[in-house]
Design a protein around this nucleic acid. Sequence first.
DNA 1: CTGTCGTAGGGAACCGATTCCACATCACCG
DNA 2: CGGTGATGTGGAATCGGTTCCCTACGACAG
Lengths: 339, 339
Amino acid sequence: MAGIAEVAARAGVSKATASRALSGSGYVSETTRARVRDAADALGYVPSAGAVGLATGRTQNIGVVMPYLNRWFFAEVLEGIQQALLERGLDLTLYDAKPGTPGRERIFGDFLARKRFDGLIAVGLEPVDQEIDQLTQIGRPIVSVVGTGEETSVVAVDDDHAARRATEHLIELGHRDIAFVGGSPRSHWAHVDQERLAGYRHAMREAGLSEFVRHAHSEVSLPGGYAAAADLLGDTRRRPTAIVGVCDEVAIGTIIAARRLGIQVPSSLSVVGIDDHEFADMFALTTLQQVPREQGAAAVEVLLAEIADPGRARTVIRTPARLIMRNSTAAPSLGAPAG
Amino acid sequence: MAGIAEVAARAGVSKATASRALSGSGYVSETTRARVRDAADALGYVPSAGAVGLATGRTQNIGVVMPYLNRWFFAEVLEGIQQALLERGLDLTLYDAKPGTPGRERIFGDFLARKRFDGLIAVGLEPVDQEIDQLTQIGRPIVSVVGTGEETSVVAVDDDHAARRATEHLIELGHRDIAFVGGSPRSHWAHVDQERLAGYRHAMREAGLSEFVRHAHSEVSLPGGYAAAADLLGDTRRRPTAIVGVCDEVAIGTIIAARRLGIQVPSSLSVVGIDDHEFADMFALTTLQQVPREQGAAAVEVLLAEIADPGRARTVIRTPARLIMRNSTAAPSLGAPAG
DNA sequence: CTGTCGTAGGGAACCGATTCCACATCACCG
DNA sequence: CGGTGATGTGGAATCGGTTCCCTACGACAG
């Protein structure tokens, strides 16, 4: 309830001085500053966010737009962002923009236009052209986590490299019959999927092996991966000895499907994923690790730098993934059927 | 960039009239209203959130505090909240208050005190006494999703009832040796766990059966449930014929552990959960369904009513869970070892 | 014909901060 | 000893809206 006027009165100074004393800017004597601080503490003074925003033009708030909240990757990134902002005293406003919903249109049309934030982090947003226009129209710095990032700064894992390393790992183990299970081509994740698929292809071509790609019919998720793998592995005549999952959820779905079909992992089938999902350890999944939490934190870092210096050139951070060896990959068994 | 002053000038009216015309309050002729609206559209006018907040005292923003983001239940509730707010044009500010972290202290001490919201939704927060004080000090309506709710309105599933029904379901199938796998007693989820445990006990006592409770050592999660179940099922001399998981994640962890140990589900072991988690279908898990998304939406409803009428009595919504039969429960096999 | 009420709209105060500018000291330097 | 610059403080404008209060006008009732 108490405003800065009350604080000023109690400390026996003007509003101007009280403001300076509390914000630490301008000339204020040490004794005055102490008096003001004491008065503020005594009154339990908390500045009105709205008033500060009006006067300074800074909202002390960061917007985060993402298409999903309930997927491991997104939730982790969000936590990373939240924590980084928390340390800096900044608020986080969340916009859940699911592709193809009227809600998404409203978010791009109305919500973001309100500019209730000093900057925006877009996580795996994959905006269409019109949406990109709307985003740039806001006139606030934007950082993408995952994404093509022709326009904005980007923080992401090096997808091509990760998939290539995953494939190479299998090749090194002696596999020659390696399938790639990706998402539906019409998936929202088109871009990431493409990159990782390209990495797989790179590695296969380099090793002189022929490609074997399978797309999930539904979304890229654990059940989706399960279904695609069940399908793939069900055909006993053309069963690969190893599978690269486009992400850990797909890879884990594959392992579950394999178990169901009585296929031993890793002795009869090797599976490698990309992510290091929270369940990866439980399924002993060998995977290429990315740390979305750190990507979120890095995005905050970059965004704040851009807010502080609007003229700043865009930053692109592409972290290489690290191979985590667990127990879902092994050399192919000799008796494996030829591809 | 354009403010209401520019809009007013373009429409040839005063700021006061422009404001009335756009907000729809007070007397404004239809023709004037149209002129103002046209001017606003032409200029792409968007009211400054900060200014509106200052003038009206309403932020058009709802705060959501939760201890986890990456758990199914929380993510679903959050999506439900988000969607309900979206429809009403309200923003959502997220506070991730993990128990026992310095961040949580800051959230309660600083962030919430800023009152950048008209009301607060606390999801599974389980605040300690001091935190409850801090929450009430804010002087804004609060709705809890999950929680004891002595003070605030509450939206939750009927935990006692759900666990009782789950247990009764197993009893009806003929099981007599039924274990309950719950969370660590020191878990953050203490309250929910207690309620569900009580429901299990109720049902067991009523049927004249002896209880068999096992707590996860770590957190209530899929890996946690896996570990606890692996432990429990590893002791072949005292192996139950059925297990009630405190939630689906634990139940699914149990199923995975059982498969690893070569125990057939449901022929040798029945497992029932509570939640209807997104993975429940994939594991054919019989469960008592709650719909967290709807709980989130209901919480918004209640909160907005309380914001509109601060004198309103608190609301308590406790939805009964619905039994979803899948394929993880069956009558006990005759040859099962006696408990 | 006058008083009242409903409608329409303008002027100015106000919400609660920040910040520009003016003013007053005081020290130090030439 | 007067000028200059660093320091400390207050008054008032400002951010961009909303809303109170006042005026004006036409219609209608008394």
